[in-house]
Nucleic acid binder design. Sequence first.
DNA 1: CTGGAAAGCGCC
DNA 2: AAAGGGCGCTTTCCAG
Length: 597
Amino acid sequence: MTSSCDLELLVGNLRDARSIAVRIIADGPSCVRATLVGLVFSTAPRRARYVPLGHAGFGGGTALDREATIEALKGVLEDPAIAKVGHDLKADMVVLLRHGVTLRGLDIDTMLASYLIDATRSSQDLEPTVLEQLGYKALTQEEVCGKGVKALPFAQVPVDGLLDFAGERTDLAFQLAGHIAPLLVRDGLETIYRELELPLVPVLADLERVGVRVDAKALASQASLVDRELNDRSSAIFSMAGEEFNINSPKQLSEMLFDKLKLPVLKRTGATRTPSTAVEVLEELALGHDLPRLILEWRALAKLKGTYIDALPQLINPETGRVHTSFNQAVAATGRLSSSDPNLQNIPIRTEIGREIRRAFIAEPGCRLISADYSQIELRVLAHLSGDETLTAAFARGDDIHDQTALKVFGENSGLSPHELRRRAKIVNYALLYGKTAFTLAKDIGVSQQAAQEFIDAYFAGFPKVRGFIDRTLEEARQTGVVKTMFGRRRAVPEITSRNGQIRSAAERVAVNLPIQGTAADILKRAMIDVHAALAASFPNARMILTVHDELLFEAPAGEADTVAELVRDKMAHAVPLNVPLDVDVGVGETWKEAKS
DNA sequence: CTGGAAAGCGCC
DNA sequence: AAAGGGCGCTTTCCAG
């Protein structure tokens, strides 16, 4: 273990020693995620200003060691002139933030660089990336620390092994950086890396550190309510079925519905070809039998309870009273962020009972939550990218875009109610974004397949340049094997030339979707960086706490909530210049549910 | 007992 | 015959 004397020597020699390796156990199980930080200071002349950081999803060490070590290194870690290199710097940053250290001078994050080069890799983890880029088979944790180490309680993991593992990973990140940085330049990704992904790292680290307050009592009372509803339904289900079975088992359920009760098999599952019990199937069956409806209700409630109501309270950090999600910046193929442990990007909103869960997401006393979401951002991106005059003019006038689509697609004399018209038009709008076929569109809006095809044709006739945008995108994909967002984020679509029609069609949908979904993701990232800076400058007591694809959530003192909301609206609306306005809906409330309504 | 596949479903 | 882009989580079921 490094003594304080060694540390002084180390820090003193940082700029002129040939090579010094230090491995620090920096943290125990704590707020967001326990992490082992390893530092390797390599001061060979050409690289003298690089401090690579790595982590290994671990924690521990004695308080004395880590506090003394971090204190000694603080000046280096916080010096923006000393460039930092690592694999997943945000993970290190979150740990250091909890020790009062703000990591500055972020330079090469090999995870983010690798992600920009190929976002569709199955993993951006250090070891597989090193294997692919450097052809080096990295040692696993078990190989370094001994077999069975992962099963040990943290306190019993041998410290020496951890140090070696940290050092190994740190060194790998450093080597990888040298190889991968030129690839960013080769692929024209420097700008999006330097101006979007890298500046987002400290923003996300802040969001994770702050977390969101969750009301465990509110969830507990919802739990007992939902329990009663579940019991009522399962009793009814078993009495109708004539026996008890596990409703949650698709296998047992399918035996009950299709073997014992002889209901018609409408669809089979993908791999095993067993009769499907998916929601579309049960909805169809519910027209002729009472049982499927009850099963659907039971399933929805069980999902709510198991995934949210029971799970969330266990994830409240006792030190902060808040839930600290992890945002993953290197997973989604389109450039979106994802959230896990827990996923706070799939909290229910669609049904009233589900929406109740958002009452449990609350502001600190004396504070308010502010929700700000882009209105139809993907359709606006489509309008911009396609340059379609009808679409852009509709957005410029502030028309309701779904009503506009209804007019174009269904005409003025369809005989449908305005509400039904708008509902169908909304489905048509989003169907287009995702490449939905006439077959499924017909099912969704309850018309014949032929009628659905006529709606699709009418859409393209009404918004003529959208067809051109799709054709150009597909042509680019065929020519280059790659599609891009407005800001140069890329996604490879190698299957675009597949001779297999199904595979090729799937690739075409991916190719058309990427510029739309990916550009929307880029815009939100830009907005997050801008808003974060604006709040730090003008409202230091207001904090960004969540991001959900087209929405940002904030917590601010009640007295300034309205002002903060307007600042946020302005920054989001002007994050990037488009040839259509970006409208932002904002709301303030004591809970997430209130803020969204 | 653990890990992974499959089915299903919550969100944008 | 299949038939919508992007995620992450829970449960069941089975293999090792």
